[in-house]
Design a protein around this nucleic acid. Structure first.
Length: 747
DNA sequence: CTATGGAATCTTTTT
DNA sequence: GATTCCATAG
């Protein structure tokens, strides 16, 4: 079997018996129990800030150090790439060397890796393509059109949601229970699902949900494959177990049947992704699912002050369906100020309040990187952005448009996919007439017709079509040239390397030329993005590795340089922590969200409450919750009452400021409160109260062409053109953009 | 085929 | 209020 002692010698560390090694000595007793309970199923209930990641990584290291397993015999699953990376790094730090050959990654990345090994068992080849959401929707739309569904009445996104939820639950088209068949499109959902799946196989492609679905299907129908993984994985580690969906659970359970050494770490109180298919029941049911399971609770919180913990605990105690656990302050300095609840007249006053307090905190020496504004919904960020811009406070909004979602990047990738994957119709379709080659509706229609009749990929059909005279000479020549190029580029991959070919593709296809000729303001930025894309490809050994990366690791590679206030949604904030946290918009309808309540009732209310709990527990020292009586939503003013969650906070732990009946008041209190001169440089009429008619400030500061300006987000630039209050500016870093003049200041 | 305008939509989004 | 998609005209 395995050379137990050999492993630890190979790692260059002596066997830990007594005295216990340093990495264990740093743990508290409960953490230590979680690390040292190695045999059988184990659930670690890790409250917010109780050292979950440390436990997980130490446990992994401990398995290796004690010789219980070789690195490749441990399956370690996370939800995010970030979490996987962190675990890998910290593991390396404990072991004092980089670790290779691990089965450590996200559910999706690990499933993809397994699926590539057994792709043919579900009708795919090892080089299948992973589609992003955009491709998915387009494909589904095509399927629906082919089936004659009225897309007006039945939006594709609705069906996409239904299919995804089926996939989340491990339901292949033939497994949908009769009672489940949705009445979508006159009971055709099931049929459309089957057609969609068939198309995916024909394209040699997978959507995200398929990765887990296919692999689970393979494991459940191929005992010999399952057995091979049982032999391989002696131990299984799972992070964020409360967020697993049913198919992920099934996958884990199949794999754990072998050695039964499965350790799941999670917190039922932080389950906030039910709308994505996560089933909190998975964690609540753990002890029944895995007989003989042990449970360890981590309840010592090392992050937050006592009042913050007490406020969070009081709130979450209102939930019914929970395993129950109480966070204890673990810090020595566990006193601290009470949580503040601030009542305001409207959303703009709320933004001013937050901005003012951030300035105050900055003066008191708080680092901006230690401050966060956490909102329920994306549209709320705007008000804070605008406020921070006028106050000249650097900030960063998380979760904006992603690099790989931009049109030019997706086009470029489509070229690479079309080149290397002849069956990838979606990619081929995307680039066949981009840039314009004169292949219009008529040409594409005959192409589609042939492909459908002959059951062949578009690219092959195109080859055939070129040999006939079905097309007029001009489109035929254009199509032929494209096909020859694709073949030629692909042939050059081996010899030239993918980076050279990539540059060649973009140049020779005329794609670069297309943007050079584009006179819109973004074109310069797009060309830069393409350059960056080609550069980034150099970090990967092969084109395939690169494509896998962008499909599974859609990361925002924005540089986190400098101290900046973080603005993000509550969902995005899970797992993070800050000294000072603002939680604005606690109003009925917004938080808890009305839509969520409408859809999910009491269960959803509990999830919203967990979201509130997540928000409060992000704070280390200061937590400021606020609500406004009036709020601007999508252009119109809406009045609302304070969130019920505010009433649920334990009275003794909070400090309430301002009354709900508060009248609109002049901003003097905020404005003269000793703000730094920089923020007062340009007083704006809008300060006088936003419920009045919009009074645009007179053009006291019209920018002239050629003027040098500064923008909070884009940095320094030069004004190219002026159109009323809109400026066209060439930024040194960000390229040419159109911005409103109130967002820039003279440099 | 492209350009323009009107209408529809707007919670959260680890992969 | 702002963006994005689709239909219609040119």
């Amino acid at each position: 079997m395995v050379a137990f002692a050999g492993c630890s010698i190979a790692l260059g560390v002596s066997l830990p018996s007594t005295p216990s090694p340093e990495y264990l000595a740093r743990l508290n007793p409960e953490q230590r129990a979680a690390v040292e309970t190695l045999d059988g199923p184990l659930l670690v209930l890790a409250g917010a800030g109780t050292g979950k990641t440390r436990v997980l990584t130490t446990r992994f290291a401990h398995l290796l150090m004690t010789g219980r397993a070789q690195p490749h015999q441990v399956l370690a699953v996370t939800f995010t790439n970030k979490a996987a990376r962190e675990m890998r790094e910290r593991l390396g730090a404990i072991l004092n060397r980089p670790v290779e050959g691990l089965w450590l990654g996200t559910f999706h990345a690990l499933a993809a890796r397994m699926l590539r090994r057994h792709a043919e068992l579900v009708g795919l080849t090892a080089s299948f393509t992973i589609l992003d959401t955009d491709d998915q929707t387009r494909l589904l739309k095509q399927v629906m059109e082919a089936e004659g569904v009225d897309l007006k009445r039945w939006p594709p996104n609705g069906l996409m949601g239904i299919i995804q939820r089926w996939k989340d639950r491990g339901l292949t088209p033939d497994r949908i229970p009769v009672a489940e068949s949705s009445d979508y499109a006159n009971n055709r959902a099931e049929k459309l699902y089957a057609a969609y799946q068939a198309r995916l196989i024909a394209l040699n492609a997978c959507d995200f949900g398929d990765l887990l679905l296919h692999v689970t299907e393979i494991l459940r129908t191929n005992p010999e494959v399952l057995a091979s993984y049982h032999r391989l994985f002696r131990y299984i580690l799972v992070d964020e177990y409360q967020d697993t969906n049913l198919v992920q659970y099934l996958w884990l359970r199949l794999l754990a049947q072998g050695h039964k050494n499965i350790c799941c770490v999670g917190d039922d109180d932080q389950s906030i992704y039910s709308w994505r298919g996560a089933e909190i029941e998975n964690i609540l049911r753990f002890e029944r699912d895995f007989p003989g399971a042990q449970v360890v609770r981590l309840e010592s919180n090392y992050r937050s002050t006592r009042p913050i913990l007490a406020a969070a605990a009081g709130l979450i105690a209102r939930n019914e369906g929970r395993l129950g656990k109480t966070l204890r302050p673990g810090r020595a300095d566990a006193s601290g100020e009470r949580v503040r609840v601030v009542s305001l007249w409207d959303s703009e006053e709320e933004a001013r309040m937050v901005g003012g307090r951030i300035e105050e905190a900055r003066r008191d020496g708080v680092q901006l990187g230690e401050i966060a504004v956490l909102v329920r919904a994306g549209f709320q960020t705007r008000a804070f952005e605008e406020r921070l811009i006028t106050l000249a406070i650097p900030y960063r909004v998380f979760g904006g448009a992603k690099f790989y979602e931009r049109a030019e990047i997706r086009d470029a990738i489509a070229y690479f996919r079309a080149m290397s994957q002849p069956a990838d119709d979606l990619a081929f379709e995307r680039i066949v007439n981009t840039p314009k080659r004169g292949l219009g509706d008529t040409a594409l229609a005959s192409l589609h017709k042939l492909a459908r009749e002959q059951q062949m990929p578009l690219r092959i059909a195109a080859e055939r079509l070129c040999q006939t005279d079905a097309l007029r000479p001009r489109p035929r020549a254009a199509l032929r040239e494209l096909l020859e190029n694709l073949t030629r580029w692909n042939a050059g991959l081996e010899k030239e390397g993918h980076v050279v070919i990539a540059a060649q593709v973009l140049e020779e296809s005329g794609y670069i030329e297309m943007w050079k000729n584009d006179r819109s303001i973004e074109s310069a930025g797009r060309l830069d993005n393409l350059k960056e894309l080609v550069r980034a490809m150099g970090d990967f050994a092969t084109l395939g590795a690169f494509l896998e990366h962008i499909a599974l690791v859609m990361e925002n590679d924005d540089n986190a340089e400098g101290q900046k206030v973080s603005i993000m949604t509550l969902h995005a904030a899970k797992g993070l922590e800050f000294d000072m946290v603002f939680l604005p918009g606690w109003e009925e309808g917004l938080f808890p969200s009305q839509r969520s309540l409408d859809e999910g009732g009491a269960k959803s209310l509990e999830e919203e409450r967990r979201l509130a709990y997540v928000g409060i527990t992000r704070a280390r020292k200061h937590c400021v919750i606020s609500h406004a009586a009036n709020r601007r939503i999508y252009g119109n003013w809406v009045s609302s009452i304070p969130s019920r969650f505010l009433d649920e906070l334990p009275e003794g732990e909070v400090l309430r400021e301002g009354g709900v009946t508060q009248q609109p008041r002049m901003p003097s209190s905020v404005f003269s409160a000793g703000l730094p001169l920089s923020s007062q440089r340009r007083p704006r009429v809008i300060e006088a109260g936003a419920w009045e008619v919009d009074q645009r400030p007179e053009r006291e500061r019209a920018f002239a062409r050629g003027a040098r300006v500064f923008h909070q987000k884009f940095g320094y630039g030069r004004v190219l053109d002026v159109d009323d209050d809109k400026l066209e500016i060439e930024f040194e870093k960000a390229g040419v953009k159109r911005v409103l003049d109130r967002f820039v200041e003279p440099a």
